[in-house]
């Protein structure tokens, strides 16, 4: 029994290899890119529009609203990064309904890569927003004593992001695999439905946490917008 799709290697040449994680990721990328391209090929600015366009508009504006609600004043600046995080994780878990598919997010390598991306992106966005001094200053606030704790927090939350997502996705796939060997009918379907739900929840958690980190890093002296109910 394999814990990660990394272990399924299709092709290898020294350090380079093509495993199931990368292959499924490419498949997801292809699906998302081509689907978007097809739908956005003929967008309408009229009041009448296609249902696919409506779907995409709901998704995009929903993500934008979520980012804004967390406290980021210019959500469109971070929409590309945060929205892609959510869409990738969500589509990776939704595609578990396809037989033979293994979500790339059940590989610790993928979740680590995503967590590292967040870990790198947060200081970049922070420096972009507040300047290098302003960002570094946030590590010694409210006092210098907090500096090591802040650094530890930075590292630990990245690790937590990676492991949380991996654990949930891997366990979901694992549970289904085990159940299929024990009770091949009906029950695995229920667990699959539950897996879809937990997948969506995990995607949302991953996305919201990354947003909160970025919001914390980019917080300036701007007045807080009125809290939304």
């Amino acid at each position: 029994m394999q814990l990660s799709p990394d272990e399924t290697v299709f092709w290898q040449y020294g350090f380079f290899k093509l495993n199931a994680t990368i292959a499924f990721t490419w498949g997801l990328m292809l699906m998302l890119a081509v689907g978007s391209k097809l739908i956005t090929r003929k967008l309408s600015t009229e009041l009448q529009r296609s249902r696919w366009q409506n779907l995409l508009e709901i998704i995009v504006t929903g993500i934008e609203t979520q980012i804004e609600e967390v406290g980021i004043h210019h959500p469109r600046q971070y929409l590309g990064f945060l929205g892609t995080l959510f869409l990738f994780v969500a589509s990776a878990s939704l595609c578990t309904v396809i037989p033979g598919y293994e979500p790339p997010t059940s590989s610790l390598s993928t979740t680590t890569a995503l967590a590292l991306s967040v870990w790198v992106a947060v200081p970049l966005f922070g420096i972009e927003e507040q300047g290098l001094g302003g960002y570094l200053k946030s590590y010694v606030e409210p006092t210098v004593i907090m500096l090591p704790f802040n650094i530890i927090s930075e590292l630990s939350r990245t690790l937590a992001l990676a492991v949380r997502l991996f654990g949930n996705m891997m366990s979901g796939a694992m549970i289904i695999g085990i159940l299929i060997t024990i009770t091949p009918f009906i029950f695995p379907l229920v667990m699959m439905a539950l897996g879809l739900l937990t997948g969506m929840v995990q995607a949302y958690i991953f996305f919201i946490l990354a947003t909160v980190y970025i919001a914390a890093a980019t917080r300036t002296s701007e007045p807080k917008p009125a809290a939304k109910t």
Partner: peptide
Amino acid sequence: LIDWFTVAAQALNFLILVWLLK
């Protein structure tokens, strides 16, 4: 559990996906 090549590849894939979706 962590294959560092895969990590790098996935990070790259993610960045490409960000660009594509943007």
